[in-house]
Amino acid sequence: MLRTLVTRLAGAAIMAVLATLVIFLIANTVPGDPVLAQLGDIAASNPATVLEWRAKWGLDLPLWERYGIFLQGLAQGDLGTSIASQRPVLDDIAQYAPATVELASIAFALALGTGIPLGIAAAVWRDTWVDAAARVISLIGVSSPTFWLAFVMLAVFYGGLQIAPGPGRLDPIAFPPEEVTGLFLVDSLLAGDWEAFHDAAAHLVLPSIVLAAATIGLITRTTRAAMLEAMGQDYVRVSRAKGMRESYTILRHVLPNALIPVVTLGGLAYANLLAGAVMTETVFSWPGLGRYTFRSAAALDFPAIMGITLVVSVTYLLVNLAVDLSYALLDPRVRR
């Protein structure tokens, strides 16, 4: 098991570096000049200024040399300096990542906590109103555009009913809890600041529902299909013939088998939630990686883009690794 883990981690590291190479090449073929994007029209019309800028950011060097410098920095834990913010990229990411991790994790928990029970219920009470209701919920979740759903939620619960707080991670006048992890829920608990905890939790409700909506639909449908397949297996009939209670049969015999495909989907979904929150973060003014990505891309801020790519690919690789390891936990047939 340990050997598998080490091999897989080494493989993941190689994959992550390869991903940066691909992005490096793509980013450099995109038409657009970061110098022009940064300097503005007047400064950019002066060739001397432009040359000076290019030299400062190393843009005058050949492509391979620039990639070499990036890798050298990477080996020392340095992702370079953002052109736009003039700060180390690592600092930028450390500042924005916790907001996204907090939002994505809550949304993921919500998606699993809703989708799996809903999927089980839909399978057990197949072709009844329960199944129909689950189908409608997942259909709405999968097919509502995120920006639309986000505006509707804000308009109804914040603007109309006024039972939910507005955009942002906290009330504009509240102070954030003392920073330890950057996750407000955790930090406020650590500080014993109940007011901040409550405030942070309330601000998470709407964006996490919006972010989770599509995933809830996917997980519900996958769980239902996997449950139905497992319920048709012979060992389920054997369990009934042994006189086991129906609830026991469903939860102990069917569910563990049905969870195997759900875990695959869940892993992908979590990685997607982490990397794909741009829309939700924009509407809810959420200071997370999604918005940072958008800004960096718009400014052609190469060091920042490279840093984000690395973070995203490492996230995907780790989540995949976690999925593979949990297979071994769920299914003895893949254990070695």
């Binding site: 015999h253 088998n257 003895p332």
Partner: peptide, 8 residues
């Protein structure tokens, strides 16, 4: 082959 639950 199919009558026993593979994960138990």
């Amino acid at each position: 082959m199919t009558g026993l639950n593979p994960v138990i």
